[in-house]
Nucleic acid binder design. Sequence first.
DNA 1: GCTGCCATGAGGTACGTGCCTCATGACGTA
DNA 2: TACGTCATGAGGCACGTACCTCATGGCAGC
Lengths: 347, 347
Amino acid sequence: MSDTGIKRRATVHDVARTAGVSLATVDRVLNDRPGVRAATAEKVEAAIAEIGFRRDISASLLARARDLALTFIIPDGTNEFMASLTDAVTRRAGQALSDRMNIETLRVRALDADALAQSLDGLDPRECDCAIIVASEEPSVVAAVDNATRRGIMVMTLVSDLPGSLRRRFIGIDNVAAGRTAASLLGRFMPMGGKLAVIAGSLHLRDHADRLKGFQAGLTAEFPQLELIGPVEGHDERPQTEAIVTDLLRRHPDLGGLYNLGAGNAGLVRALEGSGRSGQIRVIAHELTEPTRKGLHSGAIDVVLDQNPDGEIREAIEAARTLALDANGTAITDPIEIGIFLRDNLR
Amino acid sequence: MSDTGIKRRATVHDVARTAGVSLATVDRVLNDRPGVRAATAEKVEAAIAEIGFRRDISASLLARARDLALTFIIPDGTNEFMASLTDAVTRRAGQALSDRMNIETLRVRALDADALAQSLDGLDPRECDCAIIVASEEPSVVAAVDNATRRGIMVMTLVSDLPGSLRRRFIGIDNVAAGRTAASLLGRFMPMGGKLAVIAGSLHLRDHADRLKGFQAGLTAEFPQLELIGPVEGHDERPQTEAIVTDLLRRHPDLGGLYNLGAGNAGLVRALEGSGRSGQIRVIAHELTEPTRKGLHSGAIDVVLDQNPDGEIREAIEAARTLALDANGTAITDPIEIGIFLRDNLR
DNA sequence: GCTGCCATGAGGTACGTGCCTCATGACGTA
DNA sequence: TACGTCATGAGGCACGTACCTCATGGCAGC
């Protein structure tokens, strides 16, 4: 087979010729501008489908003569996971620049719905094409998301979703599945049965509640021989979690497993190592951060379930880029996987 | 703070002005064209660093007036993992098109080094900017890679690396770590000790050998109470693997664990289910494919270690795109993580 | 002072799309 | 008939980079 012809991608000119309309009309259809009869628009759509035209993102961004502006709004505070999310954004921002994307990060007070809503309301559609937020489930946030959407700012949710709002996409893991996974591992780690304690941050947090739900369901279905203690709430704080774990260890000398589905892992590790029983109890925690890494290395923690902040940021950026130019876009984005880390496959 | 000015990215014009040279000279430096004194080039580089200029990929690709051409060369045959790699390429090819990338897939006979070398030799630099190959470690392949590189075709390796060649990047997992991870999980699954069998495809394959190395090291270091049987070679084929597992089960009624670090998993599952002992033995296999998914669901397999073909393809494409425009590029690409899948976190 | 080579400048066109203005023709209504 | 509205066409400039041609000035060797 001799391939003589040089392959050329279809352009707007080809669409115009095929549809038998002018370039201006094609442009109006492509960019949802008014002044096109429905029948004409259909002709154009048909031509697009026929010749397989795909808008050239490079040229499109170039012609817009400005960058795609993304704004990440991330909870502030001492939460290490949020810090690593922010780090990931910063890291990506650099290389995103040469892809005509300008990324800004805003941090708002954690768990302060009104602060989040205000930040959203304060975004200028001329300076922000897409906002990516770690949502908390409050009416004021839903209203702010919907309002932003109406002003022309696309909103996506990260880590924690906001169903019922006009958010365009959710990027995060399935927390029920994460809880089930923890149950499945701990069950296999304790084939002889025994006692198993659960610690949560706060059951008012949607992701924590989901994890607990999955965990309990998994245990009941697969490992009924295990005796469940808790959940106890540690409010995601180091000292409180440390106290709780210390107390659990004291009261249950035969404790075989521990699942911390919230944060406060520095306290968890301290309590375990302080007890002298580190390594004898199978422990699962969440999020690959400094304390959990240390725990994995020392053997205090067996497994860490992780939602891969870097991957989430990558997906968010990619989704925003695609959606921004193709409103009814069918962007292929990878589902965020639940990462499972042992000491042996630490990245 | 009133932010009056509109942020504008630095362009080649800015570089020219800052360096005190003409646009043409900047262009020569940027694109490695001759006709620039070393001293002048340095001035330009300095200006680039000073104003933080980053070449605009969009405009660059546009101006080149042709797509980036990538060619994936993937082993042919019945190997399901290679099939899913190919699927991933096909899926990405579509959306890559609107990013000015034209992706082709070539399939060559598996384990046939000369066929791979010939394919590489046959690539035309005008029609292929970058080849991504699943390398086998043979001198003829190394020669072909180096030759392609000299002709101006960038080569990257996928899944299996080719150290000592001029390949620009390797994209794949750390197989030693994968083996260690398997040992770590199986060890925790069998706290009372017991017998543990290992099946490989062929120890002449580098990745298999690496996995075995990691597995043995992990067991020795952490779980010396486990008795290791094997490795037995199943040559990655279904019937052979089935026979081996059936035989192992028959000869070791007290077998507690099984690690298949190669392919042939359909045979593994059949043998387990045929024996009636499925679910009583802790089993770890590799690659999330149809047979291993079935095994996870039925409970025949406990854990699947996966190298995430889709992610690998994504990284390959991204790396190619970045490297193609920035030869000494410092592309941030994500390391390929070892995915750990249980029934409960199947994607 | 001539020739020839080299480094550099000046300026253009092109890539595919976005977005603007202006013209034109069709149609409906007062 | 006159006017307004609307769909559409025609054409052009802009975005930032690639790549081309041609001109110019310097410098070495003769």
